[in-house]
Design a protein around this nucleic acid. Structure first.
Lengths: 254, 254
DNA sequence: CCATCTTTGTGCACGCGTTCACAAAGACAT
DNA sequence: ATGTCTTTGTGAACGCGTGCACAAAGATGG
């Protein structure tokens, strides 16, 4: 799954921890902003602050990529942008298909963050014949009958599923059969895929539920004796519960 | 500094690990599906398979909530649904505001997964005067001038930010000042908030970048290792099994 | 060339989360 | 009751990720 090689000696330098990989896009974003302001170099301290992480963590992360910094000076912004981009595979073109052009699919198609980072929306696919031909974000929607052909013709290896839950697994199966080996799933379902296929999921309601958990705990902080306390007006105490920083994508493999 | 977990002297099961909290919604979803099929009980093995996790992990997770299972039988579905819902705080009503009604904001407003789990979209807010009054998902969009009043009138403690990156921090500041203590951020920015406020983020392009990393490495390994076997020939395997593959953690405050 | 100052890179220890493996607990049959 | 069988609940080991703290590296100035 996320790390498909269980039986691989991991040629040393390739052994970048998952947690580090998950932070690289964060660093890249901060670095890109610096680059646009023509800042030549940054210290680990500054960059860490911009990315919202601990500076020691950032240095350790970069150490897995190599020694790209200069002691006493910091990191060369442009060089680091290139190195991280290359490591993430963003120097090449990644054609992506989005399946399920509802509200969310349309939002994704319009999302600028894709194109700006090497991802190209090669096609939009929907099962509704009424959608066919209709342009969304400047791209005509194609019918799902042609899914396999679209995947093949465009050499797509990454698919985004934004269909209703019920359609997700069948769509997933077809994508995989057609050659897709990485899937970003927005449908609230556990997808089952063959070995060697990566699945990451984003579940909007799960995120809210996690927030609700912490919110509830904040509200019921000091009520130990009386169970039927009033969480209404009270609760504003020192609800300090979480660190302000710390970062992990709200997503998990599979 | 952060880790205020020392707060509770291990009084009872209040010390639920973050990783466990992040999985509770997953279990809840699987249990809800079982409940709808009128399944009375499930074993940890079955439920784990449905939720895509390891059964030992599931049992340990549940052990933090209490001893809700019956040895030799399994867990009572309805009872567990209630217990998890209560633990997550879903038995109460959570009014939510969505700020930034673009494509994504509209998709979120239409997302059914919210209402079905105790979340109520109390208001939609946008800075564009042309949007004001226009109904999205049956709810009229309100102008951001009234943000503070809306938060207060509805007793909102959870806010969703779906604005462009540049507007995110100012909006966040206003939400927090108005009383919001939990924020779900879809804007590609690091939000800075005072202590006691939870922020979770969902960054769509980051997810794709992580997939690209693994995709790139898959491609590189094939050519380097001279992989003769056809990946497609491999036996179908559950993506989210316990296997040797490592699930990456994935939960954290932002 | 030497001293000083800044910042990186990392050894190390700690804590969290995962997994194994098994004893305890209950259901059920006899 | 007693025994067998199933499944939970958890003690313990392990591995990963995090953060501290410092030595090494290089820049800079005299």
């Amino acid at each position: 799954m996320a790390t498909g090689r269980t039986h691989r000696p991991a040629t040393r330098s390739r052994g970048i921890p998952e947690a580090t990989v998950a932070r690289l896009p964060l660093y890249l974003r901060a670095l890109t902003a610096l680059s646009e302001r023509s800042v030549p170099t940054v210290s680990s301290e500054e960059l860490a602050a911009a990315a919202g992480v601990n500076s020691a963590k950032l240095r350790k992360d970069f150490s897995y990529l190599g020694s790209y910094g200069t002691r006493g000076v910091g990191y060369d912004v442009e060089y680091l942008v290139y190195q991280i981009s290359r490591e993430l595979g963003l120097t090449q073109d990644w054609p992506v298909v989005i399946v399920g052009i509802g509200n969310l699919g349309a939002a994704l198609a319009n999302y600028g963050g894709f194109a700006s980072r090497g991802f190209r929306v090669a096609a939009l696919i929907d099962a509704d014949p009424a959608m066919a031909g209709k342009p969304v974000a400047g791209i005509p929607v194609q019918h799902s009958d042609d899914l396999e052909k679209i995947i093949e013709d465009n050499g797509v290896s990454i698919g985004v599923i934004a269909t209703p839950a019920g359609a997700a697994q069948p769509v997933c199966d077809r994508l995989v059969a057609a050659g897709v080996t990485s899937i970003l799933n927005f449908a609230p379902t556990v997808l089952s895929v063959p070995d060697g296929v990566d699945v990451r999921k984003v579940d909007l309601s799960i995120e809210l539920q996690i927030l609700a958990f912490h919110e509830q705990r904040k509200a019921g902080e000091e009520s130990a004796a009386g169970d039927g306390a009033h969480p209404a007006a009270a609760a504003r105490k020192e609800a300090a519960d979480q660190g302000p920083d710390g970062d992990i994508p709200a997503v998990m493999p599979a």
